[in-house]
Design a protein around this nucleic acid. Structure first.
Length: 197
DNA sequence: CCCTGCGGGAACT
DNA sequence: AGTTCCCGCAGGG
């Protein structure tokens, strides 16, 4: 590394904070979208970047209200692991993506490890002074500013796509066996010609 | 079903 | 008054 001199614009690129009233507008090059910032990081993306728009992250992040419509805040939910710490082939561990909404999360807790069928366990994120990592995003004119605070202290869960794939997989599995199980619980649901689950 | 953003309200400082 | 968490709602996939 040569001691390069930073011109004022470069400094501007590095020194902004999501809370600044004025964010840099003369950005030369935006970052390619990076899915999973691990630690204290800041990125500037084009406002056209769909991934950046959704703040897509391999980490399971849940929206949290900071009563600031300009800045979106999200916090990390951690990762779901097998409580037996089992290993799949080649020593791979089970790192499931925590469900985002509470209802789905409770349902998820009752499920079992896809590998060894043991109980699952949720490891909360404590990477930001003992609290979950937070991500902040601000859409400003031509750019999207994303900033993460904290360093995840747990393994990374499956990506959203992997988690989705897992769910639809299961659906296929159960659909193949058109079973006459639980016929009892259907008080009002009559001849609803819909798919089970 | 589930994800995502929004915003009211409560609790705490 | 500022911040953070909890919860339900609406839009969309």
């Amino acid at each position: 590394m040569e001691p390069e001199e930073f011109d004022s614009e470069d400094k501007e690129m590095l020194s902004w904070d999501i809370n600044d009233m004025k964010l840099p507008q003369n950005v030369k090059k935006t970052n390619w979208f990076q899915e999973s910032p691990d630690s204290y990081e800041k990125h500037i993306y084009s406002s056209k970047d769909r991934n950046a728009q959704r703040h897509l992250s391999s980490w399971a992040m849940r929206n949290t209200n900071n009563h600031n419509s300009r800045i979106l805040k999200k916090s990390c939910l951690g990762v779901v692991v097998c409580s037996r710490d089992c290993s799949a082939e080649e020593g791979r561990k089970i790192y499931l993506r925590p469900a985002i909404c509470d209802k789905a999360q409770q349902k998820q807790q009752r499920k079992r490890c896809p590998n060894c069928d043991g109980p699952l366990k949720l490891i909360p994120c404590r990477g930001h002074g003992g609290f979950p990592i937070t991500n902040f995003g601000k859409h400003d004119r031509r750019f999207i500013f994303l900033q993460s605070k904290g360093e995840h202290d747990h393994p990374k869960p499956e990506t959203k796509l992997e988690a989705e794939a897992r769910r639809t997989m299961k659906k296929v599995h159960t659909a193949s066996a058109s079973v006459p199980l639980k016929l009892k619980e259907s008080p009002e649901a009559k001849i609803k010609h819909t798919l089970p689950r």
